[in-house]
Design a protein around this nucleic acid. Structure first.
Lengths: 196, 196
DNA sequence: CAGCTGACAGATTTCAAACTTTGTCAGCTG
DNA sequence: CAGCTGACAAAGTTTGAAATCTGTCAGCTG
């Protein structure tokens, strides 16, 4: 349909994302993506070896966009425990907001990520590293006293799975979800805090 | 097939459980259950108003059997933090063991519980109450210092969802899962502990 | 007459044939 | 001659007609 510039991975991903949004993960085909770009589906296969690789690349882009704004370097104000809470609430707000405001898109996103194990592992590692950074800062100021901030970072991510993992999306309808996150955070933050 | 004593709810549930185990949740029908009992399917409807009610009753029985052995009154030895760890590891072992040793049955169990929201809510409340009991005991001995043991009990259950919620079964294949639970427990137990 | 049966309507599921999609590659085209 | 096309085989999905299932109830039976 589009008159066509050079066929880049970038342009294919834009089209694939759009097709996925519009048709959903079950009905979106490589032929649809090619049609949206005004090329034959064989051309798409010159850039991505399989449909799965294409989907993984779309998932990777989505997850990267999601993790970018969470970077702890963007919010260094106040005690580490508060930064930790803000980070957790921001992550939860991103996921829960998407689930609430556009359930179809969220379902597409969830399914893509559920199938892209390796991509998700990298994303989880990135999030854990962000938490590790906040915790390490807290150790630096004496607020926290953990031996290994990176183990603790991963543990905090695991302990809050209920509030950000798409598998739990059905539970986010409960209005208590926000205060439940705070209760878990309270225990974790106290657990991280220095023994005097 | 069975010559038939009185047709009780108990016997119907036994048969339904057996049929579900053998055929799986997708293929098990009320007619199959009736056939296993040697009665017409109409008779089953005299005891359970709908198929959903029958499935819910099976799910309730499974969950009750699961929660029984966890009762904190059965394990009152040692510090509360250790009791908490044992309780969490026992719960995880029950679920993870079932998922590993009989994946088909576990899938059946997961699907039934996923559909039986109310039954699961009651089960969650029961587990949270068991955790509350352990925490309240810890507060009694001065080991723990939380204002509201029942809020804390629920928070501990939520924080460990990754290790016992069937949604996360795919992640249990990772051999690190055991040490990850301990790391989360460590933070939670320290978080519960008295500020001096 | 309490409890079960079996025929029934409407909803749901199955199954196989028709169609669509994936992934490849020989050859066209600018 | 780099990059695209389109025909193709194998795999997977749709479709709709037939079969099965759910839930009800009038009437049978011990």
């Amino acid at each position: 349909m589009t008159p066509a510039a050079v066929l880049t991975e970038e342009r294919i991903l834009d089209a694939a994302e759009d097709v996925l949004r519009r048709f959903g993960p079950a009905k979106a085909t490589v032929v649809d993506v090619a049609k949206a770009l005004g090329v034959s589906h064989g051309s798409v296969y010159r850039h991505f070896p399989t449909k799965v690789a294409l989907r993984d690349a779309v998932a990777r882009r989505w997850l990267d966009r999601l993790a970018g704004p969470l970077d702890p370097a963007r919010d260094t104000e106040g005690p580490a425990a508060e930064r930790l809470l803000r980070w957790l609430e921001r992550l939860a707000a991103i996921k829960q907001g998407m689930a609430l405001s556009d359930p179809e898109l969220f379902a597409t996103f969830s399914q893509l990520t559920a199938e892209a194990r390796e991509v998700v592992d990298a994303h989880v590692a990135r999030l854990a590293a962000q938490l590790t950074e906040i915790i390490a800062d807290g150790v630096g100021t004496g607020e926290f006293a953990v031996e290994d901030p990176s183990t603790a970072g991963l543990a905090v991510l695991h302990a809050t799975a209920r509030f950000h993992h798409p598998l739990h999306a059905a539970e986010w309808a409960d209005p208590a979800i926000g205060s439940e996150l705070r209760e878990v955070w309270r225990l974790l933050a106290q657990g991280l805090a220095a023994r005097p």
